[in-house]
Amino acid sequence: MQQAIDAYLDEVMAHAALSRSDAARVRAELSEHLHEMLDEAGANQLEFKEALAMCANEFGDAKELGQSIRISKGRVRTFIKRRAKRTLIGIGVCVLILLGVRSTLAEAFLVAGSGVAPILPTGSRCLVYKLASNFSAGDIIAFHPAEQPGIAELAIVQSQDRQGNLVVTRNGRAPFTVNRSAIVGRVFLNTR
């Protein structure tokens, strides 16, 4: 009897194509129903084919039942539930990759001041390459100013010494030195 119920429900569930949790629940519920029906009919000793026929007689064609359950559970909802785990993992991986890129390779900045205008005017965005180590005169860099290390400012490179420290300028300021450790990177893309 159990084999017949399993065979029938395998076909139903194949056509229902539910999420794993819904499938387990629906299968358990239908199985309980068929067991109770067969127990009540005293069908414990039935041959496989007879028990299978009783299942089909009670619930109808396995394919039709599976498709009806699929529709009643909601195709969109089922699709989302089936894909939820994969989608969440995908989003998580993307976030980790973005965080990794942001902390090691490149970071985007919004230009809030006019320190390097008109090359990069206020309101434009720029992408800073954080692995840059050699700079040329005229490069625009992002750096953490000593007085406010929590923020980043932009400046134009004038020269670089042997230790990697930079002499830079900003509008309205005399040339000053940026320590190598305070350099974020070189601007390599902008939306000006």
Partner: peptide
């Protein structure tokens, strides 16, 4: 009712 009708109906009402 054919039970093939009952369970889809229950799941539909539940959803």
């Amino acid at each position: 009712l054919g039970q093939g009708t009952l369970y889809p109906l229950l799941y539909s009402l539940e959803s």
